[in-house]
Simulated assay, not measured.
Amino acid sequence: MPAAGSGSTPSGALTGSAAIDVIKATAGRQWQTDLARTMNYVPNETTLAGVIADEESTAATAAGAARGRATPSSPLRVDVEADNPHQAASECRPAGRDHARAARAASGRITEAVEPH
Rank of each mutant, 00 (worst) to 15 (best):
A49G: 05
L14C: 04
W31H: 14
T38G: 14
T26V: 15
A13G: 03
D34N: 05
K24E: 14
V42C: 01
T47R: 07
P43F: 08
T15C: 07
Q32S: 04
D34S: 02
V51L: 00
L48H: 02
A25W: 06
G50N: 09
T47C: 05
Q30V: 11
P10E: 10
A25Y: 00
V42M: 04
I23T: 11
Q30Y: 05
K24Q: 10
I23Q: 05
Q32N: 10
T26K: 07
T33L: 10
S17F: 03
A49W: 09
A13M: 09
Q32H: 01
G28H: 00
A25D: 01
A49Y: 08
A18F: 03
S11C: 10
N40I: 11
G12E: 02
K24S: 06
V42K: 01
I20R: 06
G28F: 07
I20K: 00
I20H: 01
A27N: 02
P43Y: 06
Y41N: 09
Y41D: 13
G16N: 13
L14A: 06
Y41P: 02
Q30T: 14
Y41H: 13
D21W: 09
N40R: 01
T26A: 05
M39Q: 13
A18Y: 10
G16T: 04
I23R: 04
T38F: 12
Q30G: 03
T38P: 00
A13F: 05
N40F: 13
P43M: 05
A13E: 06
G12H: 06
A49V: 03
A36F: 08
L35M: 09
A49M: 09
N40V: 08
T15L: 09
Q30E: 15
A18P: 02
M39Y: 10
Y41A: 14
G12I: 04
G16A: 07
A27V: 12
A36T: 04
N44P: 06
K24N: 10
D21Y: 05
G28I: 00
A19D: 07
T26I: 14
E45Q: 13
P10S: 14
V22D: 02
A18E: 15
T33S: 14
A19R: 12
A19T: 05
A19L: 11
E45K: 15
Q32A: 08
Q32V: 02
T15M: 01
Y41V: 03
D21I: 11
W31R: 00
R29H: 15
I20Y: 07
K24F: 07
P43H: 01
D21H: 11
A25Q: 12
